[in-house]
Design a protein around this nucleic acid. Structure first.
Lengths: 119, 119
DNA sequence: CAATTATTTCAATATATGTTGAATAGTTGT
DNA sequence: ACAACTATTCAACATATATTGAAATAATTG
């Protein structure tokens, strides 16, 4: 993942509406949802939703597939995993002492959640 | 972590300049950097950098401490960890089959991670 | 093939964000 | 107090994003 991809994804998730849409579609998994269904679930005018779906699709956080006269959207979970990996590396590579999850991964059983107290 | 905090962080990281600043400060760890040092390192006019530092500080991704006539900025790594946890849960709660990391975690000493659900 | 349905595009408008140089405020050393 | 230094705020301008209803596009139905 390069920095342009990352900023593009962050930009996509920086709107409340888009984050709502993405989280909704994550819950739906492979089933996904068609545009109108998303619009009625989240109470967003179709025109506006279309604007946000376009942004999410352009950053590849959503995939879209035509299904008759419907457009079915699905969350791109592998891309989100790539983003999580990128963030984990960015934050912990230089300073693994701050990253209990990574420590846990390598040691498997020596867990201290001290750094999370401030969360 | 609630959705407003998340969107605020995403908004902060949606600018190339701000992501560069954050990544730079992550590398510096506890040492951090003063504003002028960041500006010269990344070749950003001080006025513009100040604008972005303010955004990053406001979303709590950076902390700032006065040091004589300098302002020393540091990355808030615990907050980034919280974000990573949030994203992981958002993406994997419903579909653990897509999340090898979480599967691995559950195999490591039977940790249920209840403490993280509330983040 | 006209009517219906689903969604997007377009045009207009409103709001928000990004960038810059000049002015400002706080800090240090003389 | 003063001059030099660091960083921010301000004002102006430029650019980008968000929202809406009407019109257009595309697929389906009768």
């Amino acid at each position: 993942m390069n920095i342009n991809t990352a900023t593009s994804i962050f930009e996509s998730l920086s709107s409340g509406i888009r984050l709502d849409v993405f989280r909704l579609l994550v819950k739906k998994g492979l089933e996904g949802m068609v545009a109108g269904e998303i619009a009625s679930t989240l109470n967003i005018p179709p025109t506006n939703l279309s604007f946000h779906l376009k942004a999410l699709t352009h950053s590849h956080l959503l995939s879209v597939e035509q299904e008759g006269r419907f457009q079915r959207y699905r969350a791109n979970i592998p891309l989100m995993q790539t983003l999580i990996t990128y963030l984990t590396e960015e934050c912990c590579d230089g300073h693994p002492e701050h990253c209990p999850d990574l420590q846990m991964k390598t040691k498997c059983g020596d867990m201290t959640f001290e750094t999370q107290k401030s969360l």
